[in-house]
Amino acid sequence: MSKNNNNNKKKKNDTIYRKARKRAAEFNVKFKSIEWANEAIRVSNDQLSNYELGLYKQLPVDSVVRMADAYNAPELMNYYCCNECVIGKLTMAPVELCGIERLTIQILAVLNSTSITKIKESLIDKDNER
């Protein structure tokens, strides 16, 4: 298999579960390897590897909850509900996590569109009534 094919396969199998473990490894070295992470998740090496490679059609809910907790990644539960759970696919909306910079821009855009002056005047009027 060529180097390009290996890179494509690796990227294709870079699931949200693997990404969450890799992010968690930045703060906790035990998550750098599946062998250590599986103890926190309470699954076998093979199971966790298969979760991360996307080889399971639907992961067990309790494993997803344990991963979300161990990796401090609550977005895993939202992803599971929106993409893997039969009922959740029909009823849940995905939550987008973003950095503080993007969040600040979104807040400013909302404030600009709702007339910051009216909001400011309303707050000042309420404060003067005290």
Score class of each variant (00 low, 15 high):
130 R>M: 05
120 K>S: 11
70 A>H: 00
80 Y>A: 04
100 I>Q: 12
18 R>M: 10
72 N>G: 12
14 D>F: 15
5 N>P: 01
96 E>N: 06
93 A>I: 05
100 I>C: 07
29 V>D: 14
117 T>V: 13
125 D>V: 09
98 C>A: 15
65 V>E: 10
16 I>D: 07
101 E>K: 15
93 A>M: 08
67 M>N: 00
116 I>Q: 13
15 T>I: 09
24 A>Y: 03
12 K>R: 12
87 I>H: 06
126 K>P: 02
119 I>Y: 12
108 L>D: 13
80 Y>I: 02
128 N>H: 08
61 V>D: 09
108 L>M: 13
37 A>D: 01
53 L>P: 01
34 I>G: 03
7 N>I: 11
64 V>R: 00
126 K>D: 05
4 N>C: 06
80 Y>V: 00
40 A>C: 10
93 A>N: 11
103 L>S: 11
101 E>P: 03
92 M>V: 12
63 S>D: 09
67 M>S: 03
113 S>L: 08
53 L>R: 14
60 P>M: 07
72 N>P: 01
26 E>I: 04
126 K>I: 10
120 K>Y: 10
120 K>E: 10
53 L>Q: 02
79 Y>D: 01
101 E>Q: 11
128 N>Y: 10
16 I>E: 09
52 E>S: 00
47 Q>E: 13
43 V>W: 00
111 L>K: 08
63 S>P: 00
86 V>R: 03
109 A>Q: 14
60 P>S: 13
67 M>Y: 01
44 S>D: 03
48 L>W: 04
95 V>Y: 03
101 E>L: 11
19 K>L: 13
84 E>S: 06
104 T>G: 07
30 K>R: 12
38 N>E: 11
55 L>H: 14
105 I>K: 13
113 S>G: 04
75 E>S: 03
103 L>F: 11
113 S>V: 04
11 K>E: 10
66 R>M: 04
23 R>G: 01
124 I>P: 05
6 N>I: 05
81 C>S: 08
70 A>R: 00
30 K>Q: 11
63 S>M: 07
38 N>M: 14
88 G>C: 02
93 A>C: 04
26 E>W: 08
27 F>A: 09
52 E>A: 00
68 A>Y: 00
33 S>V: 12
10 K>L: 10
95 V>N: 05
59 L>S: 06
111 L>R: 14
29 V>R: 12
84 E>F: 07
30 K>F: 10
14 D>Q: 11
56 Y>D: 01
35 E>L: 07
40 A>S: 07
64 V>H: 00
19 K>D: 05
130 R>W: 06
5 N>V: 06
90 L>Q: 13
80 Y>F: 15
117 T>A: 12
28 N>W: 01
85 C>Y: 01
125 D>P: 01
98 C>E: 07
12 K>D: 03
99 G>N: 11
97 L>W: 12
12 K>Q: 04
42 R>W: 07
4 N>P: 02
78 N>F: 07
66 R>V: 06
103 L>T: 10
119 I>R: 15
86 V>Y: 05
70 A>Y: 01
34 I>D: 05
109 A>L: 13
69 D>E: 08
10 K>H: 08
37 A>Y: 00
85 C>H: 09
92 M>C: 14
30 K>M: 08
129 E>K: 12
82 C>M: 04
62 D>P: 02
58 Q>T: 12
16 I>R: 13
63 S>Y: 05
120 K>N: 09
106 Q>N: 14
104 T>P: 02
92 M>F: 07
